[in-house]
Design a protein around this nucleic acid. Structure first.
Lengths: 230, 230
DNA sequence: GTACAACATTGATATATAGCAATGATATAT
DNA sequence: ATATATCATTGCTATATATCAATGTTGTAC
């Protein structure tokens, strides 16, 4: 299992959350005191769908996938990179995770006692406000996702996904996606076989370049057109 | 367009929000002062996808649907009944509605200046906490919805929807759903024709009763089995 | 360095679901 | 009261997508 150490100096942490700036030193120390830095290996679960929420999870370093486990297949909702809270809304809702989060690469997660975060949120409105904003943005993201799945067909969805990673996540025409083909499929809500087929179709047409898990967006405009038409 | 009047006495309002109890009288008066009670007729839009969020919307009386407008079809995310905030997360996110809300029957909506709510939320942590909880619950609801659409097929989804309305919304084996068949379809993410087909299939099999828009769950256990199997 | 498992690819086939068309039933407006 | 639009229903057909199967590829453990 994952190794862990007690947090030493949250204030000086290069990966710290912006929301910490909303807290007084005393409160940062409170968080620090209950904060365990846990190292997860690639593939390990950070939290598990259906279990109780006991900690707030902050991804300090690495990258993780947040996905819903279904009977036959999974649906990946988000890829989250470092310096972000993961799964905040479970903290304020029914306190049960309705998704699983697992590490896409070796990652460092700060686990802070849920009640301490909630208590802080209850007395520090600036802090809670930041958390609420993060939850809202996350909700809006899922709204966009649900409509994509519902409205667009495979080619459009995949075009969307490629553009999203290039422009919003990696901010580069070339990027290395830490997803297997199956995970790209689970993220785009389609079968793995069709994912491969369409990716190679785009490659053959010169729209993208593929080198293993490295993708290059060669003709973003065409991709955008495909994404728009659905 | 909709008629409106100035709110007179929020504290005594029979439809008031629970979150008001978290506010001091001064603050309730502040809300009341900027609160317009607007009457919407059946079918009218209460807010429109793509427009700026200028007001917090509280559904005092009536029922509405919250849906995402797509190119070819809409996706209804929620049916909301009286005494609930509708669309809170847009207030804390990017301040643009990413959905449209329209009235399913003649409804009364309290429209409160968005900045006043935000200012109150910024100084009253108990109030913000209530709002955050509501947003989180709404997010979890959408998570369940997205997974249903992704994992189950038509029969399972429709069984789910019927059980949900019977058990969670109307809390009765018999209920009158203020949805057309097309709206049931948009809520279940399927075509209108298949909605009709499957509903009548269930009726023929004696699983449900249908009388226009009044539904009766006759064999909930069978419905539950269908919903589980997908 | 070899073996084994996970991953990637491609073609063929099955099927769930959408879309079209025609008709009947209700509701709404004038 | 009559006309008109919306809603509901049913059968037929087209098609997007999943699934199955076979094979190649890459990485990883011993």
């Amino acid at each position: 299992m994952a190794k862990f150490v007690q947090a030493k100096n949250c204030k000086a942490c290069p990966y710290k959350s912006d929301s910490l700036t909303k807290l007084r030193d005393d409160d940062v120390n409170l968080i620090q005191g209950s904060c365990l830095i846990v190292n997860f290996k690639k593939g390990e679960n950070i939290c598990k769908q259906g279990t109780e929420v006991t900690h707030a999870l902050y991804l300090a370093k690495g990258s993780v996938k947040l996905y819903i486990e279904g009977k036959n297949k999974n649906l990946i909702l988000k890829l989250v990179n470092q310096s972000k809270y993961i799964g905040l809304q479970s903290l304020f809702g029914d306190r049960i995770y309705n998704y699983t989060i697992s590490a896409l690469e070796d990652s460092q997660v700060c686990m802070i006692n849920a009640d301490i975060i909630l208590d802080l949120a209850k007395i520090n409105v600036g802090y809670l406000f930041e958390l609420t904003k993060a939850i809202s943005e996350s909700t809006n993201f899922v709204y966009k996702k649900i409509i994509d799945i519902n409205q667009k067909q495979l080619r459009g969805r995949l075009a969307d996904v490629l553009l999203y990673f290039s422009e919003n996540v990696f901010e580069n025409k070339t990027f290395e996606l830490k997803f297997t083909r199956k995970e790209i499929a689970e993220y785009s809500a389609m079968s793995m076989e069709n994912t491969v087929r369409i990716l190679n179709e785009y490659k053959k047409d010169g729209i993208i370049g593929i080198e293993g898990r490295e993708f290059t967006i060669k003709q973003p405009e065409i991709l955008r057109k495909i994404a728009e038409l659905g």
